[in-house]
Amino acid sequence: MSVYTSESKWHWRKLLTTTRGYFVLLIFAVVFLVPFYWMFATALKGDEQLFQLPPAWVPNPLVWENFAQVFKEVPFGRFLTNSVVLVVWNVVGQVVSCTLIAYGFARLRFPGRDALFLVLLATLMVPRQVTLVPQFILFAKLGWVNTYLPLILPAFTGSPFLIFLMRQYMMTIPLDLDEAATIDGAGRLQILRHVIMPISGPALVLVAVFTFTDVWNDFMGPLIYLNDPEKFTVSLGLSFFQGAKETSWHLLMAGSLMSMIPPMILFFLAQKRLLGGLAAAGIKG
């Protein structure tokens, strides 16, 4: 009987602790979900419900037409396609360039390597605004304004932050693997391709996801380099609903919701590897 009581107490204590834990997590979840819900609710409101006092938490009636209206007001489908094109090229560019550059910093020994790496890291401190005009002048002289080249080509020269991440990850890979491959007759690029890259999966996913979100959300780049609205991206397209004096909140929220779908799908698909990559790059470096 006493065993039963003890077990019962233990059981209830565990239940209480778990419940308390879930309760705290639930509160945080609600706090984080409220803005998302408000976004969703606003996307389903009609004009007359937007400015209601007190604000209406549940739209009535539900105006699903707002989603279709987004496509009528701006060529949203075209914007989505343009964003996808940019994202794909940038992901390819960053994965290729960051891997090669990071491999150089992590594995090759050459004079000035560490100094060069410091210079690379120092460029992280330069705000984008500082380089905006000189970079624009450069691309303008090349005749690339109103093309996607200024938005794609820099990805093939790597990003300091992503190079740093990849380098840190690669440094955790034992050198023995390289040496074994060398004994088997593999060259540098073969080692990278057949030894390092297969092991660097989580870090590569991280690079891809970070690049995806950066490019998907980039407002300033497309704004500066593109003139033709047919070439605009989702982030620019959404801003059309936000004027200096007037904002179409319901359309802005409907458009934002639709623009969130691709990053969310990506996140769920890459979730496991993404979290693993974050931990590996953050802890083992």
């Binding site: 905006l132 303008a140 500066i224």
Partner: peptide, 29 residues
């Protein structure tokens, strides 16, 4: 005709002008 979001329009115009790639005519505030 090129229409931009009002947010960031100043940056768009001033950057382009600095690179001698600005519009012939524009309106602003």
């Amino acid at each position: 005709v090129s229409l931009f979001p009002s947010r960031g329009f100043s940056n768009r115009v001033l950057t382009a002008i600095a690179a001698n790639e600005g519009p012939d005519i524009w309106y602003h505030y």
